[in-house]
Simulated scan of single mutants.
Amino acid sequence: MKNYGCACLLFFAVLASQAQNDSISNREFGNNEIKLNAIMLLLGSFEPSYEYNLSESSSVGVSLFIPFDDENFDVSTNYYISPYYRIFFGQKYAAGFFLEGFAMLNSSDREHYDHSQEGNYKYWEEDVTDFALGFGLGGKWMTRGGFVFEVTGGIGRNLFTKSNDDYYNYSPIVGKFGFNLGFRF
């Protein structure tokens, strides 16, 4: 019951913050944003982002994902570079609810198992590079001082590598999610 109450309180706090009418305009800050995904940093990966605001309702950006802690963060992805385009539906300049379309050049380790008729099997890993297209959604908030934070999530599909019985850990689906913290300048 306590968790239900906390969830309701958080929900109403988010709604109240969306309903406020701030006078933050583009003239107070520039069109550039740099951000860092705090969730991925805690899990053992580095994911910085750069975003350029094209207008009050659209922006383009790019994010880079590099894992650095393989022991605690079991991920088969070696890296990805993901350009994106966002359309905003909020009242503030390049903030509020958004929809995102993204592309992703990604490299991952694929594990192979080959079983022989004698009962033996052979195992090896292969680095596979692929290209994915996807979509996402999220919300972005900005303080009067230019501090930006956003919650985002997205899903896409790799286009070139086909599923194969020899791949042990292959999935054509890719995902992006995070809680990004940054600054608009």
Rank of each mutant, 00 (worst) to 15 (best):
S63D: 07
S63E: 08
S63Y: 00
L64D: 07
L64R: 04
L64Q: 04
F65T: 02
F65R: 03
F65M: 09
F65N: 06
F65S: 06
P67F: 05
P67N: 07
P67V: 01
F68T: 06
F68L: 03
D69C: 01
D69T: 01
D70C: 05
D70G: 10
D70S: 15
N72V: 14
N72E: 14
F73C: 01
F73P: 00
F73L: 07
D74R: 07
V75K: 00
V75R: 01
S76G: 11
S76T: 11
S76N: 15
T77C: 05
N78L: 12
Y79K: 11
Y80E: 09
I81F: 15
S82C: 08
P83V: 13
Y84A: 04
Y84I: 05
Y85I: 12
R86V: 04
R86E: 06
R86C: 02
F88S: 05
F89C: 07
F89D: 05
G90L: 07
G90R: 07
G90D: 07
Y93V: 01
Y93L: 02
Y93N: 00
A94P: 00
A95I: 12
A95E: 12
A95V: 10
A95F: 09
A95K: 12
F98R: 14
L99K: 09
L99A: 13
E100M: 08
E100R: 10
E100C: 01
G101W: 00
F102P: 01
A103I: 03
A103S: 15
M104N: 06
M104V: 05
L105T: 08
L105P: 00
N106P: 01
S107L: 06
S107R: 13
S108C: 02
S108P: 00
S108K: 03
S108D: 04
D109Y: 09
D109F: 06
D109H: 06
R110E: 11
R110G: 03
R110T: 07
R110N: 10
R110L: 15
R110H: 13
H112Y: 15
D114K: 01
D114V: 05
H115T: 08
Q117I: 09
E118A: 14
E118T: 13
E118Q: 12
G119P: 03
G119Q: 06
G119K: 11
N120W: 05
Y121G: 03
Y121S: 12
Y121L: 11
K122A: 11
Y123M: 03
Y123D: 03
W124T: 12
W124Y: 15
E125A: 09
E125H: 14
E125Y: 12
E125M: 11
E126V: 06
E126R: 13
E126A: 10
D127G: 09
D127L: 07
D127E: 15
D127S: 13
V128T: 12
V128P: 02
V128M: 13
T129V: 10
D130R: 05
A132F: 02
A132V: 06
L133E: 07
L133A: 15
G134M: 02
G134P: 02
G136E: 09
G136F: 11
L137W: 12
